[in-house]
C-alpha cells in the first residue's frame, strides 16, 4: 500500500481554505490565502460586540467584493506586529503605534467623532472618591492603564505626569494593564484601581450603552484633543486594494447600511486624514523618549 494520493489531499485542503475566510474564523497564517482582505481590530472601540463585528465585516465584503477577515488579539502589540510583518492588510489602530511605525504604514482613514477626527484621553476615578480632582490626589494609589501601546490609556497619562515633573514609574504604588479601555472603566468602577486612563470616545460610548458601568466612575481630567485612532494599511498593500479600502470607509456615511453601522459605533463617518493630525502624539513620544 502506498500513501494517499496527493491530488485528493490538495483538493480537500483548498476547499477548507476557501470556506474558512467566509466564516471569519481563519487564523492568520504565513501563507497568504485566497484573495481575502485581513483587517486587524484593537480595543480602540468596543470590539467585544461580536454580532456588530459580523455585520460590519459583511458590509466590508459587499463593498470590497472580496472576502474580509477580522483579526482580533489580546493586546495592541500583537496586531501591530502582524501588520508590520504583513500578515494582515489593514488595522484600526491607536495613534501611538501608528506614529511609532509610521514608516511601514499608510494612513487609510480617520474616524470622525463629534464631527472631528479628534478625541481625548480621560482620567477617571471611582464616583465615590469625591476628593480626587486630578493626578495630584492619586499619588501612591493604584492606577489602571489600558494597554502599553495605547495613546489615551498609557502614553498620555505618562506624558502628563512627566510634564508635571513626576516619574510616572514611581508615582503610583501599583499599576496594571487591563488590555482594553472597557476594562479600565470596570476596574475603576469596582474599586480595584483608584484611578485609570481611558479613551474618551470609549468612555462616552459606554456611558451611552452601559450606563451602569460608567456610573461608578467620574471623569476628573480630559487631555487636549489628539488624533483619533486611525485606520491604517501596511505600506506594501497594493495601491488598488488600498484605494478600495479607503473608498469604502470614506463612503460609509453615504451608504444606508454604513450609516446604521456608524450609528452603532457612535461615529459620524471617516475622513481621509493627514499624518500631521498625529503630531501631538508624536511630540509626546518624543518627550517621553528623551527622558
Amino acid at each position: 500500500m502506498g500513501f494517499p494520493s496527493h491530488p485528493t489531499f490538495s483538493a480537500s485542503r483548498r476547499r477548507f481554505l476557501a470556506a474558512a475566510p467566509a466564516l471569519g474564523l481563519l487564523p492568520v497564517r504565513s501563507a497568504r490565502a485566497a484573495a481575502g482582505l485581513r483587517i486587524g481590530l484593537t480595543p480602540v472601540f468596543l470590539d467585544d460586540q461580536i454580532s456588530f463585528n459580523a455585520r460590519w465585516r459583511r458590509w466590508f465584503e459587499d463593498k470590497l467584493e472580496r472576502p474580509v477577515t477580522f483579526v482580533q488579539r489580546g493586546n495592541y502589540r500583537e496586531v501591530v506586529d502582524l501588520l508590520v510583518a504583513g500578515k494582515i492588510d489593514c488595522a484600526w489602530l491607536c495613534g501611538y503605534p501608528y506614529v511609532r511605525h509610521r514608516r511601514h504604514l499608510r494612513l487609510a482613514a480617520v474616524p470622525l467623532w463629534q464631527g472631528k477626527p479628534l478625541y481625548q484621553s480621560y482620567l477617571i476615578v471611582p464616583a465615590a472618591e469625591a476628593a480626587v480632582r486630578g493626578f495630584a490626589e492619586l499619588r501612591g494609589r493604584v492606577f489602571a492603564y489600558s494597554d502599553p501601546d495605547s495613546n489615551s490609556g498609557f502614553l498620555y497619562p505618562q506624558y502628563a505626569l512627566r510634564n508635571g515633573g513626576e516619574n510616572p514609574a514611581r508615582y503610583f504604588s501599583r499599576t496594571f494593564f487591563t488590555w482594553s479601555h472597557r476594562n479600565v472603566v470596570e476596574a475603576v468602577s469596582v474599586g480595584l484601581a483608584d484611578g485609570g486612563a481611558v479613551d474618551g470616545y470609549v468612555w462616552e460610548m459606554l456611558a451611552r450603552i452601559r450606563p451602569t458601568l460608567t456610573a461608578g466612575t467620574r471623569v476628573v481630567e480630559r487631555s487636549p484633543l489628539l488624533g483619533f485612532p486611525p485606520f491604517v494599511a501596511r505600506g506594501d498593500l497594493p495601491e488598488a486594494e488600498f484605494r478600495a479600502v479607503r473608498a469604502a470607509l470614506l463612503g460609509m456615511a453615504s451608504d444606508p447600511r454604513g450609516v446604521e453601522l456608524l450609528g452603532r459605533l457612535g461615529l459620524d463617518g471617516f475622513s481621509p486624514g493627514t499624518p500631521d493630525l498625529f503630531d501631538g502624539i508624536a511630540r509626546m513620544i518624543e518627550r517621553m523618549g528623551r527622558a
Partner: peptide
C-alpha cells in the same frame, strides 16, 4: 506575569 487584571 504580574497580570493583576487577569487575576481579577
Amino acid at each position: 506575569h504580574d497580570d493583576l487584571w487577569r487575576a481579577f
